[in-house]
């Protein structure tokens, strides 16, 4: 039993990494911009967050720094794809290479350095006393709690506010949106930058709070898993919520199969997140439900055509 609680506890902790990034990517994609640079942006956030945390010992500054660096990466992608109208796939790949390279380059000095502080878990009064559920859900650090709230906030913005409407319509029908008075280019810029900030934060959470170390390439494909999770979540922040933790759980289960005496080659267990992601995607395609896929996702927008 206690094994299972530990697994579920870590499932929440590791699901939080991809939850931040998934929400960020959903915001970006809903505006019509496909960002395949998540892996690189996450690495930049992980590196820079750790860098700031190491030198200042301040968690808040570390998260802020990672958000800024993620936002800057988003700005690059926005400029390439919105202003220059470059191919969104290639720009994303370039961004991933750029982030991988830059973070490895500047991160060399941080390898093997441990942080002088550690993020203390906050036991939520009363709630953390609930048997099992309290153990699993309410003995985490502040960043995990923030991630509990974030998807609801974004869902609310999507569903109930003018901003959300502007964002969604930019991704569906940019030309008509423009006629309705929405500044599509501005909306897409903001969505790509805000998305990048959240992806940056996910990286910082990974290095500063979850792993408590910096290693070159430490995201290990989580950025790509994020992109798959967005599809799994059908571009809906509330489903992303469940998806990310489910995914974290499956990953942890994979890593813990040995404990349950299930014979399976240990090395192949590392493949489980990737295989699950593929199965997820397969499941979505088989389900064949109406998709929220933004109609103009990945297409360049020509404001000039409006006249």
């Amino acid at each position: 039993m206690s094994d299972l609680i530990t697994i579920l506890f870590t499932a929440i902790a590791s699901g939080t990494i991809i939850l931040y990034a998934t929400i960020g990517e959903i915001i970006t994609e809903r505006s019509g911009i496909l960002n395949l640079g998540v892996e690189g942006m996450m690495l930049m956030g992980a590196f820079f967050g750790y860098f700031v945390a190491y030198h200042t010992g301040n968690l808040f500054l570390a998260i802020l720094g990672a958000a800024i660096i993620g936002g800057l990466m988003g700005l690059i992608h926005a400029f390439m794809t919105i202003t220059i109208r470059a191919n969104q796939v290639v720009s994303g790949l370039a961004l991933t290479m750029f982030g991988t390279g830059i973070s490895a380059f500047f991160g060399i000095g941080l390898v093997g350095k441990t942080l002088k502080f550690s993020i203390q878990p906050i036991f939520i009064p009363i709630l953390s006393k609930i048997p099992i559920v309290g153990e699993i859900l309410f003995k985490h650090n502040i960043l995990v709690y923030f991630a509990y709230v974030l998807p609801f906030v974004i869902w609310f913005i999507f569903a109930k506010t003018k901003w959300g409407l502007a964002l969604k319509s930019s991704g569906e029908e940019p030309l008509s949106s423009e006629i309705m008075g929405i500044h599509v280019i501005k909306v897409r810029y903001i969505a790509t930058i805000v998305g990048g900030m959240l992806i940056g934060i996910s990286g910082a959470y990974l290095s500063v709070a979850y792993s408590k170390l910096w290693v070159e390439g430490m995201t290990a494909g989580r950025g790509w898993i994020t992109i798959a999770l967005v599809i799994f979540a059908n571009w809906n922040p509330l489903i992303a919520y469940g998806g990310a933790y489910l995914f974290g759980g499956l990953t942890q289960l994979g890593l813990n199969l040995q404990k349950f005496n299930i014979a399976f080659p240990i090395i192949l267990l590392k493949s489980i997140p990737y295989i699950f992601t593929l199965l997820f995607l397969l499941f979505i395609s088989l389900r064949g439900k109406r998709s929220n896929l933004p109609k103009s996702l990945g297409l360049a927008y020509f404001r000039e055509n409006r006249e």
Binding site: I76, R85, V90, L93, F98, G101, I102, F105
Partner: peptide
């Protein structure tokens, strides 16, 4: 460090992408 190679490659990609502007 070796990462310089990846960085230069990504810069080339970005530059070529930027060049698309002048092609289209």
């Amino acid at each position: 460090p070796a990462a310089v190679g990846v960085i230069i490659q990504s810069l080339i990609l970005f530059a070529i992408l930027g060049g698309e502007l002048f092609k289209n």
